[in-house]
Lab assay of single mutants.
Amino acid sequence: DRIFMTRTEALEFLLKAHQTAVDKIGHPSHKQTPADHAAIEALDRLLLDVRARRVDQFQINASAAQIIVTD
């Protein structure tokens, strides 16, 4: 599946995904793992790359739809 978004929409989408990941590892019942921190770092890099126009398409994980940034 493909989803087309403007750059602004894609950045909002990534910010929400980032916040969800941060909230998940901050929850008291969740045991933090290196994979959790790696996922947040990957989202940080992706946010910067989309914002800087170095990336025009991405996929958060293998089961997610491919996001295509349109400007």
Rank of each mutant, 00 (worst) to 15 (best):
R2T: 12
R2G: 04
R2A: 09
I3S: 03
M5D: 00
M5H: 01
M5K: 02
M5P: 00
R7I: 08
T8Q: 14
E9K: 07
A10C: 03
L11K: 01
L14R: 00
L14N: 00
L15M: 13
H18I: 15
H18G: 02
Q19Y: 04
T20K: 14
T20I: 14
A21K: 04
V22N: 05
V22F: 07
V22G: 03
D23S: 12
K24I: 09
K24Y: 07
I25V: 10
I25Y: 07
G26K: 15
G26L: 14
H27C: 06
H27A: 12
P28G: 10
H30S: 10
H30D: 08
Q32P: 15
Q32E: 13
Q32R: 10
Q32C: 08
T33L: 07
T33E: 10
T33A: 07
P34Y: 07
P34R: 08
D36E: 09
H37E: 11
H37A: 12
H37D: 09
A38M: 10
A39L: 15
A39Y: 15
A39F: 15
A39V: 13
I40V: 11
I40N: 01
I40A: 04
I40Y: 03
E41M: 08
E41G: 07
A42L: 14
D44M: 15
D44Q: 15
R45G: 04
R45C: 04
R45Q: 12
L46C: 02
L47Q: 03
L48H: 15
L48E: 15
R51I: 14
R51N: 05
R51H: 09
A52M: 14
A52G: 07
R53C: 09
R53L: 09
V55H: 01
D56A: 10
Q57L: 07
F58D: 00
Q59F: 09
Q59V: 07
I60K: 01
I60P: 02
N61I: 07
N61A: 11
A64I: 07
A64R: 07
A65W: 08
A65H: 08
Q66P: 07
Q66G: 03
Q66A: 10
Q66E: 11
Q66C: 08
I67W: 01
I67A: 01
I68A: 03
I68R: 03
V69P: 01
T70N: 08
D71P: 07
